[in-house]
Design a protein around this nucleic acid. Structure first.
Lengths: 226, 226
DNA sequence: ATAGCTGCTGACAGGAATGTCAGTATCCGC
DNA sequence: GCGGATACTGACATTCCTGTCAGCAGCTAT
């Protein structure tokens, strides 16, 4: 009754795929993994569910496409957040942005879902292009910066692993945070407001910054352990 | 053919609930959230699926019970892992055990699922007993230890938030790690073997330990920022 | 215009999953 | 042993969801 009868819209195959993926992502982000039903997505878009099958072969096809698209989008967004100098380049600012990007609007939830249902890029299926090593790139950047500072300060060259571990820690923490941040806050008895969130991120940024600095600092009096 | 006909076993209601929950948890941990089907669980246990309905009202009832039981179990396991002095009490050892507990066998996956499908203890439904504040307890412990050390070393008293943030960071990191540790390793270009994993944990433990120590260290030459 | 490619749809098939119910079997207290 | 409470079951009802198919309709090229 509501829809009198829209004359039927025809998209390019690519557009259709995009719209469908977006709708699916919305549903997944809101309602959890079990909320992806072809009929619902179709209704959201005002199309019929066989159309989805037409574009993605099967529900499973849609799911895999969704997982891959999510990872790609995350990659882009994170990279953009990092290398956007217009909003500050201090570690604090960058970290804050990345946290925001990951937490805001379902990126992390999507990733978690992908991991949960083993649809994560477990075995690079050959077709995975280049996003594969986002963290690697970040590790490189951090390491390079450490090297620079070390040279400038006349300190010792830092181990590559130092940079990798830092990046890995932040990544894991952001995932956990985006996924269950509010729960964690509650469990920790912390108030659940934005200012705590921000202070936490700043704290973390400082923590790492300090650590990395000291990792390259010239060895003044290195108290020998034994 | 295989099952000739087992004479029918009768459990106490409580036992039955436990067995069913355990089976459900197994399936969830392995196959992801969509793999919880009453019929499958029933088959695993050699019972009929209406029995599950009998004990849990509905599938949704089972799910909620599962989420709550998971959180309770996690609480117990983590507390046990922490306060088990038989395997070392250094920060490194404790952290390592907790990581192990959380990652090994599905705890984190369960939690993530609960968070994803909004079955997490979002609004304490009144019946939640005491596990609610696990992190709070840990924060207390850390803070107390900091106070002790501060007193022993004659340093300054640390802010409570310092302890809370540390705990929160570790919690988030462990969640993210347990959920996507291997993926993160791959993305970071780190080899995916146990030794890296261990070194990472040790690195993290040291990082925090250092930080906390310095937070309570007597202010020697505190370079004023401005 | 017209033809043809292909995005798109309605109707239907097939199956699977949850939930209901009436009845059975097992354990416990007497 | 007996009776009652209740854990448990088989068969059935219902609902819902994916996937198929034959055909319709919008767009482009010629």
């Amino acid at each position: 009754m509501a829809t009198a009868k829209t004359p039927r819209r025809r998209r390019t195959a690519e557009d259709a795929r995009h719209e469908i993926l977006a709708a699916a992502q919305r549903r997944l982000a809101e309602g959890g993994p079990e909320a992806i039903r072809l009929q619902d997505i179709a209704r959201d878009l005002g199309i019929s569910h066989p159309t989805i099958l037409h574009h993605f072969e099967s529900r499973e096809g849609l799911m895999q496409a969704l997982a891959r698209s999510a990872i790609g989008a995350l990659n882009d967004d994170v990279l953009r957040a990092i290398s956007d100098p217009s909003r500050g380049t201090t570690p604090e600012a960058v970290l804050d942005r990345v946290f925001e990007t990951l937490g805001g609007s379902g990126h992390a939830r999507l990733l978690a879902w992908a991991a949960l249902s083993d649809r994560a890029p477990a075995s690079p299926r050959g077709d995975t292009p280049r996003p594969q090593q986002l963290l690697r790139v970040l590790g490189d950047a951090v390491h390079r910066r450490m090297l620079d500072e070390a040279r400038a300060a006349g300190g010792r060259a830092p181990a590559r692993e130092e940079a990798d571990f830092s990046v890995r820690l932040v990544a894991a923490a952001m995932l956990g945070d985006a996924l269950m941040g509010d729960v964690l806050n509650r469990l920790a008895g912390l108030p659940n407001d934005a200012s705590v969130q921000r202070r936490f991120r700043i704290w973390l940024a400082r923590l790492l910054d300090e650590r990395l600095r000291r990792a390259v600092a010239p060895a003044r009096r290195r108290r020998a352990k034994r």
